[in-house]
């Protein structure tokens, strides 16, 4: 009931729904970059939506399974392969001892997820298993994965002889469609932008720069000019906060963002579009569209409802699979 990292990827870390309730001491939330994909991956293998999963970028890891288990790959598409068989995302599969999962090439997106039924055995810090690399806590030894790491699964499956890929998959198209338009609401310092910069923000193309990571996506685009120049006392920022840097360029704060900041907050990405934004890889373009606060709230409710409906329909399909593969749970 474990997996072995044959080859580490560029940045493989375990992430869950985030470390909530500690921002008052400066501990950032972290958690999955693409929360919706993480939740869907968990749902497809019968977990609670916020169970810790493996998050990875490209180059992706090569992983060997030491025993049978029910798993799924979700999020970005790196052309997954199980031994030599092609694997479609969001499609559950059962591995046999010795099965190897690898990723052939980058196709789409930035962050992919590997979820296992029952979850991984991870370090818990402040009620979260998300890896905090700075503090070196949570996840697997508080760090990204290295070659030779063995990660245990919480639940033991009955042995199977052959690899099995299920014929069905979770259809996430209705709420995860790829688009380069990112909806946002205006921020407290929106009016610091002069009129033409406000127009530019809604019109021009931005490109995700190479200096982008789990902390923030730095954008390349025409410099936006301020009509106001004041020092801001540090205050809270959020996942999706669009900050205006002194040179007129933008940075969007992502999952590992610091808790407080002092740059003008000109906008915030709608919660419903955080996942879509997270999947805009380095070099991808994006446009902002400003929506009302109420619209943003509504889009998020729609996304939550879609995921809940998906969870409901999948739970029926999974029932037999899980009872066949896993011994009765103790609890």
């Amino acid at each position: 009931m474990s997996m072995l990292i044959l080859k580490a990827g560029l940045h493989d870390t375990f992430q869950d729904g985030g470390r909530k309730g500690w921002q008052h001491v400066g501990i950032n939330v972290g958690g999955a970059m693409d929360l919706a994909s993480m939740q869907v991956a968990n749902i497809v293998v019968g977990n609670k939506p916020d169970e810790g999963v493996l998050e990875f970028t490209f180059p992706a890891p090569v992983i060997q399974f030491n025993q049978a288990a029910l798993l799924v790959v979700g999020g970005a598409d790196f052309e997954a392969k199980l031994n030599n068989a092609h694997l479609v995302g969001c499609k559950p599969f059962v591995v046999a001892a010795g099965t190897v999962l690898s990723f052939a090439t980058w196709k789409q997106g930035a962050y992919a997820y590997l979820a296992v039924h029952g979850g991984y055995e991870l370090d818990d810090w402040l009620a979260s298993t998300s890896t905090h690399t700075k503090v070196k806590a949570g996840g697997f030894n508080g760090r990204r994965l290295l070659k030779g790491d063995v990660i245990n699964f919480k639940r033991k499956a009955r042995e199977v002889n052959t690899l099995r890929i299920f014929p069905w998959y979770a259809d996430v198209r209705q709420f995860m469609q790829e688009s380069d338009t990112i909806r946002c609401v205006t921020g407290i310092e929106w009016l610091w932008l002069n009129k033409s910069a406000q127009k530019d923000f809604c019109k021009i193309k931005f490109v995700v720069s190479k200096q982008s990571d789990r902390m923030g996506y730095r954008l390349l685009g025409k410099a936006l000019l301020k009509s106001k120049n004041e020092e801001l006392p540090s205050a809270a920022v959020n996942f999706g906060t669009v900050q205006l840097l002194p040179d007129g360029q933008l940075i969007i704060l992502m999952a590992d963002h610091q808790t407080t900041g002092g740059y003008p907050r000109i906008a915030h990405v709608a919660s419903a579009d955080r996942s879509r934004l997270a999947q805009r890889a380095i070099g991808a373009s994006l446009y902002f569209s400003v929506v009302s606060h109420q619209e943003a709230e509504m889009y998020f409710m729609q996304q939550v409802t879609h995921i809940e409906q998906l969870a409901f329909s999948i739970s029926f399909r999974l029932k037999d699979v899980i009872s066949e593969l896993y011994e009765q749970s103790d609890n």
Binding site: H24, V29, A236, T260
Partner: peptide, 21 residues
């Protein structure tokens, strides 16, 4: 709320909109 962030001259509440809704 899920998080409270006191700062120099502001307090921010983070909340889970779906639960509240």
């Amino acid at each position: 709320w899920t998080d409270l962030i006191p700062a120099y001259n502001s307090l921010t509440l983070l909340y889970d909109a779906s639960t509240l809704f």
